[in-house]
Design a protein around this nucleic acid. Structure first.
Lengths: 228, 228
DNA sequence: AGCGCGTTTTGACGTCGATCAAATCGTCCA
DNA sequence: TGGACGATTTGATCGACGTCAAAACGCGCT
């Protein structure tokens, strides 16, 4: 703890500084915040937090992707959220139960910043800027999680995949190509699908002009995807 | 606006005062908060907010139930959350987009308190107690919405119904009876089911000792429900 | 360029839940 | 108490998605 961001490379530092937690911090608050932070590197498949474990920290992803999920008694798992670089997770524990309500697992090698919950909570009492950062982050997460519920309940697999593609496409209506930033199995979990269902959804989108080769997705007509 | 809580009956006032927004407020903040509030009564099926509408307020339910939902292009709707007495909704707009991401509809006649977003936002800057209330509420909503995603993805209809019953049963393991506080169709939407599916889930629970008559649900053995 | 392993795709099949329609139930009112 | 109306249940059918197994692919390695 307390080793600050000294070891961060430029890219990681830039990601961290763009988060609301670090963005507009004044001198003294910044110093204190740095003392509440430490940097961690975890390997693919490592567990970062366990459901039911007492919560003492929340995390910011600098590099890689983290899978938040829950298990059923018979061992099946369901993803709740995928945290990308710049995202935090576990910040909902600042003002709630003491136990994590999910597992967090590194989907690949990840660089994380760990924030001590109690310290940040204390800081938030003094610095409205930090409170604001917490509220902003919580609000966004709440809204995106509500989106997730609505998507699951309203849309079929091909529609959810189309929505995902659209969310990563430039806004114009013409052709586009995107590169998935992670494995398809992770995308499947993110959309609440089995990998096989994701694969079938992609092939059902071929007739709408979607071509998939490895992680590259090409779209003939972005506008047409919207009509699905 | 600004008519305060003068018109509230005792029950409604008690509900309001138990919310984190009003609970520990000091004199001056309390006065200001009161000036940001107004009381509204809405009839069954009235829309309280519309998706896409510019957000200028959030709400606290004092009486009745409010359905937050989204529509698909072809007119189907999906519930995202049911707000019960004591719950707030729309508070995620304090630090996020300006447009509501859902519709809110009174499921029955409701009494609500309307909070002006900008005023509360300004108040939160000065009063850490208010910030704390916002963060507490957002955290709880985020966690319960994550629970919702996990439930949808992990459990079948009968399991979700069993979970709901258990969440409203006294903790001990023996027999119990509960009364649904709303129509079954609302419960169905809450659990992400069609009303017919809820009905079938109830009847599939008969073999586990669950009896339903109108809004009364009787459970022979609470412990047995947990094993489903 | 060829090999080898983990990921993804495809096929076959079963189950769950949505949908539509019709019957029944509950509750409110006169 | 008898209706009447909306809510709920039941039945029949269908489509979407999960699961398991096997084939194909992609990618990194030498």
């Amino acid at each position: 703890m307390g080793n600050g961001d000294i070891k961060l490379n430029n890219r990681d530092r830039a990601v961290l500084m763009k988060t609301p937690f670090m963005h507009g911090l004044t001198g003294n608050s910044l110093v204190k915040m740095l003392s509440a932070m430490s940097v961690e590197t975890v390997s693919a498949r490592d567990l970062i937090v366990r459901e039911g474990q007492r919560a003492e920290a929340f995390y910011c992803v600098l590099n890689g992707y983290v899978r938040l999920y829950r298990l059923s008694r018979d061992g099946r798992d369901a993803d709740i959220r995928i945290s990308a670089p710049g995202d935090t997770f576990g910040e909902c524990m600042l003002y709630a139960d003491r136990k994590y309500p999910f597992f967090a697992q590194a989907a690949e090698t990840c660089t994380l910043v760990r924030f001590d919950l109690q310290t940040v909570k204390d800081l938030a009492e003094e610095d409205p800027g930090i409170s604001r950062a917490v509220m902003t982050t919580l609000s966004r997460h709440l809204i995106s999680t509500m989106d997730c519920v609505a998507n699951d309940r309203l849309f079929t697999a091909p529609q959810r995949v189309a929505n995902y593609i659209l969310s990563r496409c430039p806004v114009d209506g013409g052709p586009a190509a995107i590169r998935l930033p992670f494995q398809k199995s992770l995308l499947a979990g993110m959309l609440g699908l089995a990998p096989e269902a994701l694969s079938r959804a992609f092939s059902s989108l071929r007739k709408t002009g979607v071509t998939v080769r490895g992680r590259i997705i090409q779209v003939v007509d972005v506008q047409a995807l919207r009509e699905i």
